[in-house]
């Protein structure tokens, strides 16, 4: 196994994330997953959108693409189709993926194109100072929800499942070691893989909602997020307070780029 540290552009560090932010843990988990699978560094592309999470692409030593807000998935789709031998990993945030990029998300999942999407879910628009996202839980406060949110958040894993993703998992910044495996399995799945990663944002989310320090937020996470098997044993009422983690769903469906290669063959373009 390669040392994951070789996957960072050390001259671009330190990163811009706030003290206590969970993004660094999630980014490290991705690097470790890549190391674990021994992916070719020159054949792996990291694509991101806009937001705190999406700055990760700049720190990672691959071909990296920091796209426009919400648009990581269309760019990533173009890269994968243009050169299917590339491993394409997408880093996105809750606003980037589930609000402005929501349409791209469901359609990339529907196509089952071989992308691995890691959603850094910090429940807030962090970079712009704490506005509510579609993943901000009800009654939590944000600068654009000063009296508390009242609109329902998405469950992104359920959205991914309904849209057709063939690998869906949830991990957290607290459970850092299992997260590496969840991401690695996602990369290995030949199809659209989605890993929701819960991360703490003490600065723009925790502080406004009196959730305490980063450590306190991680402790909460450790209590709220439990393995799927344990979650399944709970009563419906008890489940309201918890979130399942681990591999939540897998499915088998033809992968888009491979299917298109068949179209090319059918049209005679494989000899062109």
């Amino acid at each position: 196994m390669r040392d994951y540290e070789t996957f960072f552009r050390t001259n671009r560090l330190p990163h811009i994330w706030c003290p206590g932010c969970g993004h660094g843990i999630a980014m490290k988990a991705i690097a470790k997953a890549i190391a674990k699978l021994d992916l070719d560094q020159d054949k792996t592309v990291i694509v991101s959108g806009i937001g705190c999470s999406s700055r990760a692409s700049g720190y990672m030593d691959f071909d990296t693409l920091h796209t426009a807000h919400g648009r990581a998935l269309p760019f990533a789709t173009g890269i994968k189709l243009a050169n299917p031998e590339l491993n394409v990993i997408v880093i996105t945030g809750d606003g980037d993926c589930m609000a402005i990029g929501g349409n791209h998300f469901i359609h990339a999942a529907r196509r089952n194109i071989d992308l691995t999407v890691i959603l850094f879910n910090n429940n807030i628009y962090g970079m712009t100072g704490g506005q509510a996202s579609p993943l901000t839980p009800v009654e939590k406060k944000a600068t654009t929800a000063p009296y508390g949110t009242f609109d329902r958040p998405f469950n992104p894993c359920e959205v991914a499942k309904t849209a057709g993703a063939t690998y869906i998992a949830r991990g957290t910044a607290f459970h850092a070691a299992p997260l590496v495996d969840l991401i690695a399995q996602g990369i290995q799945n030949k199809g659209f893989s989605f890993i929701e990663t819960l991360v703490q944002c003490p600065t723009s989310y925790g502080r406004r909602n009196k959730m305490g320090s980063a450590a306190a937020m991680l402790k909460d996470m450790s209590e709220t997020v439990i393995p799927l098997a344990a979650y399944n044993r709970l009563s419906t009422e008890e489940r309201n307070e918890k979130l399942p983690s681990g591999v939540l769903h897998t499915d088998v469906f033809p992968e888009y780029a491979a299917e298109y290669a068949k179209i090319i063959k059918q049209a005679g373009g494989d000899k062109a």
């Binding site: 648009r71 998935l73 269309p74 789709t77 890269i79 349409n103 090319i264 059918q266 049209a267 005679g268």
Partner: peptide, 24 residues
Amino acid sequence: PKVGGNFIQMEDEIAGIGVILGAS
């Protein structure tokens, strides 16, 4: 596809340009 190229119908107009920038 006859010349080994790709056509993809995207979900919206923005994706239509995003995907070609990625391919490029």
